[in-house]
Design a protein around this nucleic acid. Structure first.
Lengths: 155, 155
DNA sequence: ATAATATTGTTGTAAATGCAACACATTTTT
DNA sequence: AAAAATGTGTTGCATTTACAACAATATTAT
């Protein structure tokens, strides 16, 4: 009786979002292995974020990529080992921080990957009208800003 | 020069989707602990899916919740231990399968959680027009169906 | 001035996840 | 009829992840 009145979680936008994102991630991971890309998807995201936010410190990067500090450290260790970034000891508000800088080798790798995956990435949204894609992206960003206010991120 | 022509991955809908979904998941996980809900979010999703797809077998469930068989097994072990589901040995196309059935205790728990989290879940989309939420959900489903055709799921 | 708190990054550890291998039965191929 | 392939579920292991504790320094409170 009461059964039909209750909204199923699997009908909610939360679940729909998670499932779609999950599938997209799986697809991108498969693409990375298929194209023989040697850095992980998370490393690629971090590298891309660093390329846009020059001189960002580790903690701020962690906030952007939504990983905790520990895992951000590990991702950056990998990127540094591969010589795609350098860590520069500096200060921010009188505190010692490690600012991140992408190397030329990192820029080249980033561009190389972006070009490689472009057509595959575009292909996914091919069947959906561009204005709809943009609209979804806009609403998602709106969502995200609201979410950021509510979620307690202790990073 | 070529730098500005390349679309950054972090500007793509892939990344926007993943980040938004990630935040939503973090929020829901925090909600679960705050409300003292004793099953995991994944267990809850599985239970909800079983309640909608009665007599589903493990492999078909795995396809729906987008987990591999191994992890589906583990999630179901937990749910069975907590007496929220039972596994019924049966056949499907002459093959032995374990069909899943939700127990009364499972239904009660499911409803209890759904009621508990409802207001919080609604709250997230409060500031966005309902028709926009519906539109996003519709387009996401469209996305997802396209994705399912492309992604190789070896479950 | 001393103690408490906060910021930044690292390390340790337990849990979650993905992937491969296995077991077992059934279907299909040769 | 024998062999190969397929479908179903489980176990094992290596990787990823989240969370907590730590180290070092700077700020704030008492």
């Amino acid at each position: 009786m009461t059964d039909c009145k209750i909204l199923h979680y699997t009908d909610s936008i939360h679940y729909e979002l998670e499932q779609t994102a999950r599938l997209m991630r799986i697809l991108t991971l498969q693409l990375f292995t298929k194209l023989g890309i040697t850095i992980s998807l998370d490393e690629y995201c971090a590298l891309d974020t660093i390329s846009i936010n020059r001189q960002i410190c580790q903690r701020d990067l962690a906030k952007l990529i939504l990983k905790d500090r520990a895992n951000t450290t590990r991702i950056l260790n990998e990127l540094e080992k591969k010589e795609y970034i350098t860590r520069i000891i500096d200060t921010k508000n009188n505190r010692l921080v490690k600012k991140l800088e992408i190397t030329q080798k990192g820029i080249d790798e980033l561009n190389s990957i972006s070009i490689k995956i472009k057509s595959y990435i575009d292909n996914v949204t091919k069947k959906i009208a561009p204005e709809e894609v943009e609209k979804v992206q806009m609403i998602l960003k709106h969502f995200r800003l609201d979410l950021e206010k509510v979620v307690e991120m202790n990073i």
